Amino acid sequence: MVAQQYATDYTLPEMLVACAAREIQNGDVVFAGVGTPTLGALVAKLTNAPEAIIAMESGSIGCQPYRVILGIGDNACVENAICTTSLWRLFSDQQRGFFDVGMVGGAQVDKFGNLNSTAIFGSGDYYRPKSRLPGSGGANDIGASAKRTIITMPLDKRRFVEKVDYITTPGHLDGGDARKRAGLPGDGPAAIITDKCIFRFDPVTKEAYLDSVHPGVSVEEVKAMVAWDLKVAENVKTTEPPTVEQVRLTRILDAHKIYTGSGLKNLTFENYVKMLEESYELLHQLF
């Protein structure tokens, strides 16, 4: 076996993508959301899981895009796809147990892996929130039905809360066998991948615990960014760095740093068209 060559010049968002990619096993059928989940799934497809099948909300199954995907309705979602079907059919198949992995994110996550992408209440409530967010889309269905879910989001104390303001995507609800009692068919979150560490879930209590910290990050730094009394593994690991190949692929897939940097802030219509033209050539080399 050829030894992995690890990158030394990676960024933390690129580390997040690499860690997400490693959660996908060869042959998995993956329901991937737009953004970091899609990047992670595509990097996995091009490295450790070449037989993985990536599905997207609009009905695309097995896409290998030539252009950067910014939304589920983009033409790029169907490029090189095995097939395209309807949104309702895709979700129907998911509810029947055909999806191994769901990759999701949100604005808030709590210690049981419940996600909120609906509203931040602040001092208000659902009808008068501090912030109104995009909402569920397919996130509720993914969290309820996928055999396992992988959560990807930056580590931030405002995001990692004791209890989410609103459960958009069910995690392990209030722990233990709560999912089973609620009648949810999927097994719930398996990991929370962040830009500084990886959380996993206790098999009995279903509460998140710190499993590994990324190189250069301390346990204390992670605990300071979490709003609950975080459990820590007895032997906390150091996360395996991204490989040179994983970083190279991430930079091709997201050459303008839309998801691994601040590229979205500078995206005008003219820049968008230019980005699509450039990414077509870059991604054509991969697929």
Rank of each mutant, 00 (worst) to 15 (best):
V17K: 06
I198Y: 00
P185A: 04
A7L: 10
G105Y: 02
R128V: 10
A76K: 01
D254Q: 15
I72R: 07
S123R: 10
L184Q: 08
E23Q: 15
I82W: 00
S136T: 03
L39A: 12
V34T: 14
V232D: 08
L184F: 14
F98H: 13
Q94M: 15
V244W: 06
L286V: 11
K274M: 03
T36S: 02
K231N: 09
A178E: 04
A146F: 11
K257T: 09
T38E: 08
R179F: 08
N114R: 04
C77M: 02
R200G: 05
T36P: 01
Q108R: 07
L286M: 08
F112C: 05
Q108P: 06
V101W: 13
S117H: 08
T85Y: 00
D202V: 01
R179M: 07
G59R: 07
K223T: 09
T194H: 00
G73P: 01
T205R: 12
A182V: 03
E221S: 12
T205L: 06
C197K: 11
H256T: 14
I82L: 03
G175T: 01
A119I: 03
E221V: 08
F112P: 04
F112N: 10
I120W: 13
V78D: 00
K196P: 05
R89I: 12
T268E: 05
H214L: 14
D254M: 14
R67N: 11
A76F: 00
L249D: 07
V30Y: 11
